[in-house]
Design a binder for these strands. Structure first.
Lengths: 211, 211
DNA sequence: TTTTACCAGTGATATAAGTCACTGTATCAG
DNA sequence: CTGATACAGTGACTTATATCACTGGTAAAA
């Protein structure tokens, strides 16, 4: 029951019967930072819930472009793996741990069955869909309507919120990749932001002063 | 029972009990082309299923920008209104009929209740989510990774598939709006496509020759 | 018929972003 | 200590897209 209890802590909405069911049917995994959980084109057989750590979900096309979508924090579930249920589609989605993480893997068959059985699971899935949808729309907005400087600000704010720290440990190169831009462009824009006192640039990290 | 039967025709997956339930709880609406079904910031109390016609779903920000997301054809449901269940969010989504349409409005309370009661409804909702998610991701891809010429091709192909006709009745101005570009740019790109024999440009419509 | 409104074509120019080439500077391995 | 490597800064240039200003044509309204 130790497992069920730790789920309860991160997912307070879940009813007891559900967490016990999970103890039976789901798998608990400890995963080090930097591990790829999902590769584009991969066949998906289970959905995941994040107990601890941080998982980055991003989009990749065939030509080496990539694109940040959102983070999964403790208490979050992956809407994408839920939709991939049919297992047919080769959605170009990748997921990677950015911190050492604890993940619950739920087989997709169970996921469907639980929907009828456990109200709290049903609500969780629906809420997950809704939140990710909303987040995706916001991302789409920023790409479609905003210039790179605004997108960069948006990106930093998001990291700040997710990490809960004003110091964001990331290189310009990484940002460029996630925004599908180039390092030089990001460097220059960051410099402008620094001049306006919005951030402080250090080697290997960016400190948020005022956004 | 006429109503239930016509639903059955467009949504062959629905079980009889469900279509009869709909006859009781849902509202049937005839809506002329060009009607706004959803305004950004509007409070949403029901989800909709398209029986006939064509509905355009698009994104709008505050500054007059808009952005095409997808079409709803007969047999489709609106994933967005399903997610908006909580009615809290003011998602900047707009929907408009592009043809005279017949729509079923399902109160959001029912929608939730039916999930347990009718398997076919459950599958329909899940499939709707999945399809829209996928479509949204494709849109995001094209905006993030592609240049305007590729996006334009993608856009025309999509319309071709949806409309089922090689003649797409649309002005350059409208395309520009939906791709968040400008008329002149679209005109020039279309001209290039015409030179390569991919399309034929007419006044008020574009004819697809080879995509 | 005349007028008005909308659609489309096009050159000139402006701007944001991407690319290339190079420099300096920390950090780490040998 | 010495290369080697990755991060970061920067000027010069290219390219895609946006914007401006104008033209002409068609179609419907007056």
């Amino acid at each position: 029951m130790v497992f069920a209890e730790s789920i309860q802590k991160k997912f307070p909405g879940f009813e007891a019967a559900l967490t016990e069911q999970m103890e039976l049917d789901a798998k608990f995994r400890q995963i080090p930072a930097g591990t790829e959980l999902m590769r584009p084109g991969q066949f998906i057989r289970s959905t995941m819930l994040v107990l601890d750590g941080l998982v980055k979900v991003y989009r990749e096309d065939g030509e080496g472009n990539e694109f940040f979508m959102y983070y999964l924090k403790p208490g979050d579930g992956c809407a994408l793996s839920m939709t991939c249920m049919v297992g047919q589609e080769t959605s170009n989605i990748a997921a990677k741990t950015v911190q050492d993480s604890e993940i619950i893997m739920v087989p997709l068959e169970k996921m469907d069955a639980w929907m009828n059985q456990y109200k709290s699971w049903y609500h969780f899935v629906v809420k997950t869909y809704r939140d990710r949808f909303e987040e995706l729309l916001q991302t789409l907005d920023s790409v479609a309507f905003r210039n790179m400087d605004e997108r960069l600000e948006f990106y930093l704010k998001r990291h700040y919120k997710t990490l809960g720290s004003k110091i964001i440990p990331i290189t310009h190169q990484e940002i460029a990749q996630e925004l599908n831009s180039s390092r030089e462009v990001i460097s220059r824009l960051l410099k402008k932001m620094a001049e306006r006192g919005k951030v402080k640039l250090n080697r290997y990290n960016i400190e948020i002063l005022d956004l």
